[in-house]
Design a protein around this nucleic acid. Structure first.
Lengths: 166, 166
DNA sequence: TTTTCCATGTAACTCGTTACATGATTTC
DNA sequence: GAAATCATGTAACGAGTTACATGGAAAA
């Protein structure tokens, strides 16, 4: 339901059409969320059919017609519920992408060092990108701050492993 | 491919049957990986049909027959490739479960505080569980250490948010 | 005697991604 | 004239989960 929450929350601020929503998410939340265009359209359809948002066609000049969505009253209630549920409950993060670590001593320390350095570089890069993102007003910034803190922690931890290998 | 890597890596240490593998993962890696029984059986079937592991039926007393798997030569090569690929590349973690944060100022500071405290408690609990896990020999411990570091960082960060709300 | 453990599997379903299709319009 | 942008969608696929089925043996 997290993606639904995201769309509803954004539509609550102001009415928008699908393309616009996806663009916004891609540009300003790319560090934290990855929502594909087709998924966005699909979810908007679904939310509309459930009555949580209303749909109205709009034409801007010669451009293709857009479907503009706005939050309905029942959408507002739903949003409030989702938001509270989301803030309250912690879903443990599983780092499947680190499973290789369990088998680190199956390869030589030297090669391990080389591989982990590559990984370190990628994390560092991600950190720079996240930090370079334009600051936001209000709580939108919180997610970006969290991402930064997380990446920082990942770097620190990985540096510890690397140090230990040397 | 991470789950495949996990199974291959474990089978490389010693031959095992499906039930055993799943049990091991559940008991000793529960903080880091969550692999359902059916997924395990499915993956083992697949890996066997691809020739990366071999299958042999075994009977222990009156118990139901087991399928014992062991790594083949081609499985070994595959494993080595997967392992290196996994260690080298970083897949950015997306914390969908924190999307609500973006909308934190849609609710009162007091209620936000209450909700986030609940979340804090859950994280803290997860940290205790992870720390309580019996220590492992070799690099298996690394993943658990990572999980601990991550949870610690989450706690710190959340405490910052909570402090700011007060 | 009922529940739990051992041991394996199948079928249906959910969620999300990929790849593709359309078509006008503005920019290079 | 080609490419990118605006705008929406569909169909097929993939990974993984849920729920269910089986059936004997050991433990409560």
């Amino acid at each position: 339901m997290e993606r639904e929450l995201l769309l509803l929350g954004l539509l609550r601020q102001e009415e928008r059409h699908g393309y616009e929503l996806h663009e916004f998410i891609e540009q300003t939340m790319q560090a934290c969320v990855d929502l594909k265009k087709s998924t966005a359209y699909y979810l908007l359809d679904k939310l509309a059919s459930q009555g949580y948002i209303s749909e109205s066609e709009e034409q801007a000049g010669n451009r293709p017609p857009r479907k503009v969505y706005r939050l309905t009253t029942s959408g507002e209630t739903f949003y409030q519920d989702l938001l509270r549920e989301n803030l309250r409950t912690y879903t443990p993060a599983r780092f499947v992408d680190l499973i290789g670590l369990s088998f680190l001593d199956d390869i030589s320390a030297n090669e391990a060092l080389a591989l982990l350095s590559e990984r370190r570089e990628a994390i560092h890069q991600a950190l720079l990108v996240t930090q370079a993102a334009p600051r936001h007003t209000g709580s939108h910034q919180l997610m970006i701050d969290h991402q930064t803190a997380h990446l920082q922690a990942e770097l620190n931890w990985l540096d510890g492993v690397i140090l230990h290998l040397k």
